[in-house]
Write a protein that binds this DNA or RNA. Structure first.
Lengths: 144, 144
DNA sequence: CTACATGCAAAGACTTTGCACAGTT
DNA sequence: AACTGTGCAAAGTCTTTGCATGTAG
């Protein structure tokens, strides 16, 4: 997933390529981990001090609309957003929020599911692993 | 997962077993699919017309606290709650919201993840498949 | 120039919290 | 009797929406 791909997505749909949108996309790409709407707004705020949360949400909705964005529910109940990089899933630290992508996909499960439920039209799936990274384990970040 | 197991959970922790809590638990067990906080409140409302949403949320938080409850993010952005039945995951219809459990778990992925990230302490994972069931496909429920 | 996007603010949805009273143990 | 839970309502947080203005195409 790169910037141009995403920008092309807007164009294809007749949506406009405003500087704010570009910045939102760049922030998401640069973070390399799931961000909350608020985090995105704060980061974009550096370049666009007047940006409204509405703009962030509208942009996220657009990205989600053309299938480029995943929404992830963290165990703390908060939602985060990130581009899905052609089928990677994530290892997410509950202490520091760092996310590491891993290339394994529960494909065999999907196949079994599809076999046993031929009438079900699969449209998507989610898979995420939560836990604590080494740093957070060492610093006691695993506190419940 | 059955009623007594859950009720024992409250007892073990010195929490009280009020009729409202029992009803909330029963509603969740009876539904057999993920419910939103609002749905739970509405269902419990039949038995306890005065129940407050606060009570529902507090009970859900307690259940989550002792690890009996999963929180699932639907593609529409809404959260749903349900007991995790000893490691089943779900096939969830985006049209009618019906959920069917399936026994496959992306265990091999978890193993690979653990192998390649020995410093990461895995605490949990989520896996869900979304799509459209036969009824919803036939009735055009798959509209985007 | 036209249509769509932005910023702002209000509205709406969802969730948490404080408090007085009630109910469980 | 002690202490926790409940209902209610207010407060907080998160997200969506309306509208006048701005700007990309």
């Amino acid at each position: 997933m790169n910037l141009n791909q995403v920008l092309a997505g807007f164009r294809e749909r007749g949506l406009k390529l405003t500087p704010q949108r570009q910045q939102i996309v760049m922030v998401l790409l640069a973070a390399g981990r799931p961000l909350s709407a608020r985090e995105i707004a704060d980061l974009v705020h550096r370049s666009f001090p007047n940006i409204g949360l509405g703009t962030v949400y509208r942009t996220l909705e657009a990205l989600r609309g053309f299938g480029l964005l995943d929404e992830i529910l963290f165990p703390d109940g908060g939602k985060r957003f990130e581009f899905h990089r052609q089928h990677q899933h994530h290892l997410i630290c509950l202490g520091c929020g760092q996310a590491v992508a891993f290339p394994f996909c529960p494909a065999d499960c999907l196949v079994k599911v599809a076999e046993q439920n031929p009438d079900f039209e699969v449209r998507g799936h989610t898979f995420a692993v939560f836990g604590y990274c080494r740093d957070c384990r060492e610093t006691g970040g695993q506190g419940e």
